[in-house]
Simulated assay, not measured.
Amino acid sequence: GAMSYQAGLKLGVPIALGYFAVSMAYGLSAVVLGFRPLEAALISITNLTSAGQFAGTSLIAVAAPLSELILTTLVINARYFLMALSLSQKLEKTSLWQRLLMAYGITDEIFAAAIGQSGRLSFAFMMGLITLPVAGWTAGTYAGAAASSLLSAEAAGACSVAMYGMFIAILVPKARQDHSAALCMGIACILSLCAWWLQLSSGWSVILVTVLSAGFMAWMHPETDSDTDPEGERHGLE
């Protein structure tokens, strides 16, 4: 069915391929900072967050206090709280341990892929969607770390651009079919430029832009039951 494990697995393929390429850059940088390939892979499979890992690994490398490490990764990854809240509105009935497993797998791209589905999200579908990206992110990290001696620092840095391309590829089709999504993206871009102009740190920028743009859209264009109800769509309901 549309919400089966296999359907989720299929939807996760392009994300996993993109993650493999992007996480190679993380693996490369982790080795440069003094981590072993297996350690870098372990960080990836337990964290599953690009910006959080880059920042956290850098802090560990300079022996920063644990409190600073926790606060920095919490700030950078705070947007996942908002994504989890949004996804919880679309979930079928699930147990606490099932929700904890799904929470582990929430990333920007996985969230974008899941929230774009019509109807209620099942636990099996979410597990399918998470499986390959986790494998791709971890394997890519190990591959990048193992191949660190083959690429220059400039080439490693260039790999990180792949993440933005992947995110755009997921969001643009959604924006074309849903004008409110396009408006939200436009507002987010403007706010992001403002944050850059005000020289806010990247972590705070992400949080403020996400909260303000999502909050504005929730106020101006709240999602009704028919937005997530395929039956309603078939009957021409707005």
Rank of each mutant, 00 (worst) to 15 (best):
L150R: 13
S180D: 11
G128K: 03
I115Q: 04
I130S: 15
R176P: 00
Q117C: 05
S160T: 15
S118R: 14
A124K: 07
L151T: 09
D178L: 08
A135C: 07
S122N: 05
L132P: 11
A143W: 08
H179T: 10
I115N: 07
I168A: 15
A155P: 00
M166Y: 04
M163C: 10
D178N: 13
L132G: 02
G128E: 01
A175E: 07
A146D: 06
G144K: 06
F123G: 01
L151Q: 00
A145N: 10
R176E: 11
D178S: 10
Q177I: 11
G128L: 01
A147R: 00
Y142M: 06
M163L: 15
G157L: 09
R176H: 14
L129G: 02
M127K: 07
Q177H: 10
G144S: 04
H179A: 14
L129D: 04
K174F: 00
A155W: 08
L121M: 03
A169H: 06
S149K: 12
V172R: 14
T131K: 02
I170F: 11
P133R: 09
A124I: 00
P173T: 03
P133V: 09
L151R: 00
M127F: 03
L150D: 09
A145M: 10
G128N: 05
S122W: 02
A147Q: 09
A143N: 01
A162D: 00
I130H: 13
S180W: 11
F125N: 02
G119H: 10
R176Y: 11
M126C: 15
T138L: 06
G140C: 04
A155F: 07
A156K: 13
A139E: 07
M163E: 01
A145I: 07
A139F: 14
F167Q: 05
M166W: 01
L151I: 14
A146S: 10
T138I: 05
A153F: 08
F111H: 07
I115G: 03
A143P: 08
I130Q: 15
I170A: 06
V172M: 15
G165P: 01
A155M: 12
A113P: 01
F125V: 06
A146W: 06
L121Y: 04
S149R: 12
R120Y: 01
G119I: 08
F167N: 08
S148M: 00
S149P: 08
A145T: 05
G157R: 13
S149W: 08
G165K: 04
G128R: 02
L171K: 04
A114R: 01
